[in-house]
Nucleic acid binder design. Sequence first.
DNA 1: TACCTGAATTGGTCTGACCAATGCTGCACG
DNA 2: CGTGCAGCATTGGTCAGACCAATTCAGGTA
Lengths: 246, 246
Amino acid sequence: MAGDVLVQPARKERLSLRIALEICREIRDGSFQPGDQLPPERELAVQLDVSRTSLREALRGLEIAGIVESRHGGGTFVRRFSALGVESPLAMMFEASHDNLSDLWEVRRIVEPALAERAAIRADATGVAWLGEMLERHRQPYLREGVENSAQVFDREFHAGVARLTGNVAMEQVIQLVNTLVHRGYRPDPGLAGGRRRQAYARHLAVYEAIRRREPQAARQAMVDHLQEVEEYILTEIIERCHEDV
Amino acid sequence: MAGDVLVQPARKERLSLRIALEICREIRDGSFQPGDQLPPERELAVQLDVSRTSLREALRGLEIAGIVESRHGGGTFVRRFSALGVESPLAMMFEASHDNLSDLWEVRRIVEPALAERAAIRADATGVAWLGEMLERHRQPYLREGVENSAQVFDREFHAGVARLTGNVAMEQVIQLVNTLVHRGYRPDPGLAGGRRRQAYARHLAVYEAIRRREPQAARQAMVDHLQEVEEYILTEIIERCHEDV
DNA sequence: TACCTGAATTGGTCTGACCAATGCTGCACG
DNA sequence: CGTGCAGCATTGGTCAGACCAATTCAGGTA
């Protein structure tokens, strides 16, 4: 019987969890490729020998995790790049408080320099070119005034891109989630951002250049400087806001 | 009618998502405190004017996000500290991607030394004493032969403990999840572990001593050495297993 | 008082039904 | 022949009600 696959994990765990893990495994093993459409719920439920109810609970979980995506009337698809972006259900549920914010920022300070360093060591030519094109694409909107928080989007995209160049999926996901939560918890004042944005873009360029020239230490240092700068921005802005409140 | 609260977000989103966001909001607003028990599913479904099916899909999502926790026959509770469990989005993502072990290990190599360093700076006396007691408790079982994989449990406990001393909840969660996944992916041969365990325990002691004496660099170095040693163990063992297979 | 039993509570799973969005097929018309 | 639209098939979304299984707790018994 097809459903026997699900018996492996301890009989104790919820069925929906076992189903979700099973589907994850099939994705990993290549039975379902990224971009593929999964079988219809009714059919998949029969294949796995579970009710549609339980299957759907599993799919909702996978959707929250950013692994699949369901479209009403269209079907359920495996995401190409499982993204824990701001619009992901997970991010929508999680509200970063100020306590968490400094914690999350510390995770960035620890992980991101190491990511930049490793990217400079391991990135292949294709990846470097890809990152370069990304920066070129960011250039105009980044420097122009009044494009509001698109800068935040670009910032996240760049940092996620550096993470991707390391080839380490685990780190990429961790840092993407952390950055999403940080950006969610802190929304900069769009008006004040002109010079800051230029500076941030310059630092991004510096990181990229170091990666392109295969200089791990320089890449690490550029990232450290970037984070340091941004941290100071955030601190001063928070202080200003406190003054306004008083 | 109670269910009208749910109409606010665009009528487009799935009902289960709207429910999940609504519950999140009530948690943030204090209607449900961390540790509280939520109303029974049947009752909550009536309150929100939705079917139990949809409510359950929402609760599964919240559980995956680490916000609530359901116990069969017990009830559903708001988590005190939203935890990244094995059913967390990140865990599922790793499950869905190939070859996680080396990636996960690299996360440890990056994060754990930094954790040890910060623990040596920030830990309070209570925390240090707590870690010391933990090691004392580990001592006998760790060094005795034949206690099987309890060593793995102790190992996870110690590393989680160091993370806790930093006071950074986010990092604690991340490293706890990573270590769980690593240990799940790699089960050492219990028979060969005698000397190795003694060595690991000695390194744990070294890390602890450095933290106790407030020597950040020493703590970092001890952790680096520890991870390096364990990594070598794992590599040689994997190679041996390959030989057996041939 | 301590322990055990059983009923009430509560989450877990299943079935089958119907609604709603999407996509496709084939026919009619230009 | 090509184009556009109507209608049907497909597929996800929601619902109601039933029954199973783990936990909890009150009440009774030793």
